[in-house]
């Protein structure tokens, strides 16, 4: 049973997305949204820390959260492809975040029932934060989608561009099934139904069209990434790679 890999998938989702969002710091369209996006980043990196600490404990080799974040190669990261995609414009960042939040929200709701007490506790803590996230990104999807002709077009483009990366989150593989059967992991098919309903509802309110069923990209959950992840890691890991063991 590979509990460590299961924990790392969510830890990597939250760390990489948090790192992506942090790129907005000082570049938000207006101050309030700059602050909001960096608040999201902080919450997600906080969740990642709890998950990495637990993954390190499960592994039992004396590693720390920092070892897991800073000293693994791209092929050993198991985040979904969606979270590593570049920010694009503000609308694309919001669309990517909305798609992930809709997953993250239902994921943590289910994970609270995990037999694994530490995962349940992390979920109980995180769900409060993600509740704010999903509300915020839902509102912005509608505001921008049902906004001006230009904002509508940009949002529809963002939705179309990201769509092929959305199914990986809710598609179970052998590890997901194993974890679910053990009572530790969540039922991704149940989450998929909730995700579909939420996305359908918000996109309808936003006057945005759901793209026709198309080819779906997968691979991140097993370490096969887009070319973008390497650049994220290069920046994030640079200091620890150049000065091993450096501390504040």
């Amino acid at each position: 049973m590979n509990l460590k890999k299961y924990i790392l998938r969510q830890a990597d989702n939250t760390l990489i997305l948090g790192q992506r969002l942090a790129e907005w710091c000082g570049h938000g369209p207006v101050l309030e949204q700059d602050i909001a996006i960096t608040n999201f980043a902080l919450d997600l990196i906080g969740q990642a820390r709890s998950l990495y600490q637990y993954a390190a404990e499960v592994e039992g080799e004396g590693k720390t959260e920092d070892d897991l974040a800073y000293l693994r190669e791209a092929i050993d990261f198991y985040n979904v492809l969606l979270v590593e995609l570049p920010n694009g414009n503000f609308g694309k960042t919001i669309a990517r975040q909305f798609f992930f939040d809709a997953f993250n929200y239902y994921f943590y709701i289910e994970l609270q029932k995990s037999k694994d007490q530490q995962l349940a506790a992390i979920a109980e803590k995180s769900i409060k934060e993600v509740t704010y996230h999903l509300r915020y990104t839902s509102e912005w999807m509608i505001r921008l989608g049902d906004g001006t002709a230009e904002s509508h077009e940009k949002m529809q483009t963002a939705v179309n561009d990201l769509w092929a990366y959305t199914s990986e989150m809710c598609t179970p593989d052998a590890l997901d099934q194993e974890m679910q059967e053990a009572g530790i992991g969540v039922d991704l098919q149940k989450i998929k139904a909730s995700w579909d309903a939420k996305v359908k509802d918000i996109l309808a309110q936003a006057t945005l069209e759901i793209p026709e069923n198309s080819w779906m990209q997968t691979g991140g959950k097993n370490g096969k990434h887009t070319e973008h992840l390497g650049f994220v890691l290069a920046e994030m890991q640079h200091l620890q790679r150049t000065h091993p063991g450096a501390t504040w």
């Binding site: 309030e32 602050i35 608040n39 704010y132 915020y136």
Partner: peptide, 13 residues
């Protein structure tokens, strides 16, 4: 409310 997210994670503006 100006913004759900404020100067720290625990505050709104």
């Amino acid at each position: 409310m100006i913004s759900q997210f404020g100067s720290t994670a625990c505050k709104s503006h």
